[in-house]
Amino acid sequence: MVVDVVGFLPHATIHLPGPFRYLWLQPICCANSPPRMSPEQILFWVFAVATVFSALGVVVLKNPIASAMSLVATFFFLAGIYVLLWAHTVAALQVLVYAGAIMVLFLFVIMLLSINDVGPAVQLSFSRLLGAVATAALLAALVLAFRKLPTSDLAWANDPARLASFGSIKEVGAIMYTQWLFPFEAVSLLLLVAIVGAVVVAKSRI
């Protein structure tokens, strides 16, 4: 559970990339004083709320371009959360690939097609209502499931060597190119297929 993992732990730390790598924040909560918000907790909440709102924006905004910009914002906030989760490599990737590449592609397509959406953004029908209800039910179930999870003590983080390498590019690379070789090759195949497929489909004539 994201909130617990990040927010309410006694010795939570932010593990920043680059020069700030070893910037450790002090434990912020003591057993006998009422809990206070730590800086990273505050940051988390800011990002979380922003993420949810911008994600909602994707869904409810009428103009596709506004939706897309909202999605970009979501990705940025998510990247922030990833950093808080000690996953700076992935956070960087997120910014590079999602915000940098995928969203540009999206915007490009929207501009290219000069889509001007008329009519209501959401049109409800029976099946869609059903879908919305199913979604709500799933949300409730998931929230319940996450609520039940125990808070982790992050005991592994007491091992500084592990903590130091956690989430670093080197570590990610080492694992990916040694252990995850087969899926990696599969991804390369996937990208090849995607290139061919995209070119083939987007050509105006065969």
Partner: peptide, 19 residues
């Protein structure tokens, strides 16, 4: 929980949006 919310927002969007 945030992830769940995000996921469900996405799912909702898939199910109800027209564009």
């Amino acid at each position: 929980m945030l992830a769940a919310a995000l996921f469900c927002i996405g799912m909702l969007g898939v199910l109800v949006r027209r564009n």
